[in-house]
């Protein structure tokens, strides 16, 4: 196994360990804790009042546009990271290129801003 793959194997092992630790602790808890469910206990909690309406309430998702904008900038970040580690090699050329790239993305942000997308209504 190569060094690179092996280092990510450790990451995998840690992921499994997290699940195992949570599982072990929940198993200990399962042995110690009582389990006496009643109908009243299993009602969704709404500050002591009986819940009104269905279980999954509808709500306006204003976050949708924010999520779309997030994808835009997150992809941008993926492009900037490799550039950032090699900036000295690229010199002025790299700097100008990235300035143009960031400028175009900023235009996008300002467009969304002017359209009133960033305003919370």
């Amino acid at each position: 196994m190569s060094e690179l793959l092996r280092s990510y194997l450790t990451v995998g092992i840690f992921g499994v360990a997290a699940i195992a630790m949570a599982g072990a602790m929940l198993t200990i808890a399962r042995i110690l804790r009582p389990s006496r469910p009643t109908r009243q206990k299993l009602i969704a909690y709404e500050s002591g009042v009986d819940p009104v309406g269905g279980d999954w309430a509808q709500s306006q998702i204003r976050y949708y546009v924010f999520a779309v904008l997030f994808v835009l900038f997150d992809v941008e970040a993926v492009f900037i990271f490799p550039w950032a580690t090699r900036l000295e090699v690229y010199g002025v050329f790299g700097l100008v290129e990235m300035a143009i790239f960031i400028f175009i993305l900023l235009l996008g942000l300002f467009y969304a801003w002017r359209k009133g997308v960033l305003r919370w209504v």
Binding site: A18, R33, R39
Partner: peptide
């Protein structure tokens, strides 16, 4: 906390409900 009863609300999506804290801890 170890001795507290583990309550799943009747309407909850049981499997996702149980997995969520493990994902955050992971």
């Amino acid at each position: 906390f170890l001795q507290k009863e583990d309550i799943h609300p009747a309407q909850a999506d049981r499997r996702v409900f149980r997995m969520a804290p493990v994902v955050v801890l992971g």
